[in-house]
Amino acid sequence: MNKIKLNFINKSNDRSNSSIVIFQKNAATSYDQLAVAWKVIENCGEGDNHPFEYSYDMEVSAGDSHGNFTRKLGAFPGNRFEMIKDDTGDVLKLTKEYTSSPKDVEVVNHLNKGAISANIYRSGTLLAKKKVVAPGSKAVFQFLPKIFIGVTSEIQQGEVMNSAVIKDLNTQISLSGILSADIVMTGGSSNPYEFSLDNVVYA
């Protein structure tokens, strides 16, 4: 099982054509770290649905101070990557070393000079990033099998969200042991929005 099939269904009374944002928090850092809008569902009208996948497989890439971005490499818990300079320029490579925690993915900046950015992707979409990783430093990522979901506006997919927005998006949905499920949104109008799982198929 390397992915979960999810299906968002709008059964709410929303009349503002609100967007739905789904994201994860990096469990390897402090709670107040800024998160990335991993999935943004737009224009999903009453009774409409939006299928998507949550892949357990991730990818990692890095950007250097010259504006270059590396190709994406498959990333699994326990993997440590390093940004180095070889005969071709700045490249990201998987090392033979393991991370301090078997649940982490690390990106180490082994360049002599110049900060890098570290980016993690899930299902081909940006999931998290650390904008500045100085030489000799590293970015550490760890994600639990749960997502955060909420109603918002004016947030684009892949955008870093500020702490005020993250604080309001506090509905957690555990995906542990799930093969597929519907995520049903209800509420709206004068009632708070609620999200629940339905038609759950377990592994």
Rank of each mutant, 00 (worst) to 15 (best):
residue 92 L to C: 02
residue 130 K to S: 02
residue 14 D to K: 07
residue 165 V to N: 08
residue 93 K to D: 01
residue 75 A to N: 08
residue 146 K to L: 09
residue 93 K to M: 06
residue 192 P to K: 08
residue 68 N to P: 01
residue 195 F to E: 08
residue 28 A to S: 14
residue 192 P to N: 05
residue 29 T to G: 01
residue 108 V to Q: 04
residue 115 A to F: 04
residue 172 Q to E: 15
residue 1 M to H: 15
residue 193 Y to N: 00
residue 127 L to W: 02
residue 149 I to M: 12
residue 174 S to C: 12
residue 74 G to N: 11
residue 38 W to P: 04
residue 40 V to C: 00
residue 184 V to H: 08
residue 138 K to D: 04
residue 31 Y to E: 15
residue 140 V to H: 06
residue 55 S to N: 13
residue 200 V to N: 03
residue 179 L to Q: 14
residue 199 N to L: 05
residue 186 T to F: 09
residue 179 L to G: 07
residue 52 F to Q: 00
residue 100 S to F: 12
residue 130 K to V: 10
residue 45 G to A: 15
residue 174 S to N: 14
residue 153 S to F: 08
residue 165 V to W: 10
residue 45 G to L: 08
residue 186 T to N: 01
residue 167 K to D: 13
residue 155 I to A: 04
residue 8 F to M: 08
residue 90 D to T: 15
residue 203 A to L: 12
residue 103 K to V: 12
residue 17 N to W: 01
residue 28 A to I: 04
residue 1 M to N: 11
residue 148 F to T: 09
residue 183 I to D: 01
residue 161 M to A: 10
residue 45 G to N: 12
residue 135 P to V: 03
residue 172 Q to I: 11
residue 60 V to H: 07
residue 38 W to L: 06
residue 23 F to H: 05
residue 73 L to Q: 06
residue 157 Q to W: 03
residue 81 F to K: 01
residue 194 E to N: 15
residue 188 G to N: 01
residue 95 T to K: 06
residue 96 K to M: 11
residue 74 G to W: 10
residue 120 I to F: 00
residue 147 I to L: 13
residue 188 G to L: 02
residue 197 L to D: 04
residue 196 S to G: 11
residue 80 R to V: 03
residue 182 D to N: 15
residue 94 L to E: 09
residue 167 K to T: 05
residue 92 L to N: 05
residue 60 V to F: 07
residue 114 G to H: 11
residue 155 I to N: 08
residue 7 N to C: 11
residue 71 R to H: 05
residue 159 E to N: 07
residue 195 F to S: 13
residue 196 S to Q: 07
residue 9 I to R: 15
residue 161 M to D: 13
residue 150 G to P: 04
residue 107 V to H: 10
residue 173 I to E: 11
residue 98 Y to D: 07
residue 192 P to S: 03
residue 68 N to Y: 13
residue 7 N to L: 15
residue 185 M to E: 02
residue 143 F to L: 12
residue 162 N to S: 08
residue 154 E to H: 14
residue 156 Q to G: 12
residue 151 V to Q: 10
residue 200 V to H: 09
residue 54 Y to E: 15
residue 127 L to A: 10
